[in-house]
Design a protein around this nucleic acid. Structure first.
Lengths: 352, 352
DNA sequence: TTGAAAGCGATACCAC
DNA sequence: GTGGTATCGCTTTCAA
């Protein structure tokens, strides 16, 4: 049997408390005794207090859970997610806390909440979840600190994010100011149609995910204000947030007449795919067709993409801080980070 | 105070065991009683058995720890790592287990082992650690299942990996067969020199990391057999496994005379950087200079890089399986996956 | 300084 | 089908 505190205590001839102190509060006993205990422990093959037992007693797990929908592997593929996790990791590291990655199945109701109920963590970071996801209720029930990237009515969760709609409103105004009137918006709308292709979105409210919903709303508002009716705007859904999907969506838009003069994508990855399609047709981005993205991932700079910059790593970092010790004042539990429109080479005056 | 099993038991007027059964073994009680219990629990705001307490009792944490050196964020940036984690995640998911990411500081002796001692996990996956890292001993002491990507003498750990040296031996033979005699090898050797630039490596044994050490050894063997003395081979160290660093290393090699006719990089990321440098000088990869990588990451295909293919995701997946239930027979705890040399466009006959 | 005793919240075995 | 009892391994007052 593996040795326990008791084993060591017996071997040295002291009580458990003393052995415990030897590990957790070295200042509570003489250096000499502590040495004897540690030596005996090493001899017995005792590796130190059991983390689980310690967690139970101390009421601290030493980990924060990160909730994802879909396959966990998605988290590693999306550049925005990588940046976000990087920031989250940096504050976790600082707080001597690990990151527990928790995939949330979408199909099975049971599997969708189990990770939330079973995770040994001190808090949760909700990366991205649709409003109807059952895990949301489970989360609330566990009563642990939660931080999310969106505000949900009635939720106790902290918020660290950006004003999504304001960000795309700026982008929309930019395009309108350049004279664009025929526009299209490409996004992962998670509509009933799970495939890449045109969809009709009567109102942004129909979109399941907060992020895309708000971003779409921003565009709608800017265009409406600029005199471009929403009904004239083509919306194309992609099955996945991938570069190839962006290209496929753009292919649809570019191959029909009249071609839009500007295509807004709700993520940079999609926008880069759009650029691929534009170039593949011998069209010049920023001249024949303007393209705007969202996120400002590293490749956006390289490829000269006009996009909305958002502080991805900082979002992660601040989320971690809020989880590590949640402020008592609710006002401090909501952080809105700034975004900026970065105009590069892919947006220009509408062709006449 | 938050409700516990006892609270619910008292409210319903049954014993703790019964409430526990209601959650963990529904078949042990009448559906009716179970319903009553669950309803009462919901009313009291009881979210189900406490995961920590349950872990203690069941002796199962429901998570596996993934050990990294350096910044945790590195894990998200390296394409090979992403693939590996993807595979690991897939088997973890299947085993209803989370992934606990544990960054291992390199500087502080204390911080270097703490994560290993404190992690609430059922096993560890060692992603990449130098042989002298103190966490290795701590790992052994904890007595949990461990799987690593390299064999370490005297270690109990399972092994899932490839024959690194055989892989590069094949690559080296390929280059020799093409007539190359002036060669260079670029790698993250972790020598004393922490900067990008030429280093002298008398023998592969001097390299701190297993992976690079073995890969270097493979090249040395192939070249020696082909009549190319090791002393004639230029070795260049990079400070980080990045594309820009690969380019910088290649710059050094390409700007001096006589220029090597072939450059082998110990990772694809580096090789792509080497390609950048080659092209920047107006040289043609595969004609003027041959370039070989290692890993076969997605971009390698795109860029036509000759490289060694290794099954990254499969390594992760098999690692997960071994951790989830370790085979009793030690022979089954060692998995060597195959690698193949993929000859694409960046390698060709040595220029005369 | 050191130790005794009382939990932390749950599960598992075994009677009833 | 249900409940008693003994742990799981540790931390933490509090008194000696």
């Amino acid at each position: 049997m593996r040795p326990t505190l008791q084993t060591v205590a017996d071997a040295v001839g002291v009580s458990r408390s003393t052995v415990s102190n030897a590990y957790s509060r070295p200042d509570q006993l003489s250096a000499d005794l502590r040495d004897r205990i540690l030596t005996a422990a090493a001899g017995l093959g005792y590796a130190g207090p059991d983390p689980t037992a310690r967690s139970l007693r101390r009421r601290r797990a030493g980990a924060i859970g990160v909730l994802f929908t879909a396959k966990l592997s998605y988290a590693f593929t999306d550049p925005y997610a990588v940046q976000f996790l990087r920031g989250l990791a940096s504050s976790a590291e600082q707080g001597r806390t690990g990151l527990l990655l928790l995939p949330l199945s979408m199909d099975d109701e049971e599997a969708a909440v189990a990770p939330v109920n079973d995770a040994v963590v001190d808090g949760f970071c909700v990366y991205c979840l649709p409003d109807w996801h059952p895990a949301l209720a489970a989360l609330e029930a566990r009563g642990l600190p939660v931080v999310a990237g969106q505000k949900r009515p009635g939720s106790q969760a902290s918020f660290v994010g950006i004003d999504e709609a304001a960000a795309t409103r700026a982008a929309g105004e930019h395009l309108v100011a350049l004279g664009h009137r025929r526009l299209a918006v490409v996004g992962e709308y998670f509509t009933v149609a799970q495939s890449t292709g045109p969809v009709t979105i009567k109102s942004p409210g129909d979109v399941a995910y907060y992020t895309d919903r708000e971003r779409l709303r921003g565009y709608q508002e800017a265009l409406a204000e600029g005199g471009v009716p929403w009904s004239s705007v083509a919306t194309v859904n992609v099955a996945r947030n991938g570069r190839a999907e962006g290209a496929a969506a753009a292919a649809y838009l570019l191959d029909r007449a009249p071609r839009p003069t500007a295509i807004a994508a709700l993520s940079d990855i999609l926008a880069l795919g759009v650029l691929d399609a534009v170039r593949a047709r011998g069209l010049r981005p920023g001249h024949d067709v303007s393209v705007v993205g969202f996120d400002d991932i590293p490749d956006a700079t390289t490829e000269g993409l006009t996009t909305v910059h958002q502080p991805a790593a900082e979002r992660g970092r601040r989320s971690g801080l809020l989880l590590l010790d949640p402020p008592t004042d609710p006002a401090d539990r909501s952080v809105v980070l700034p975004t900026t429109l970065v105009v590069r080479a892919t947006s220009g005056p509408a062709p006449s």
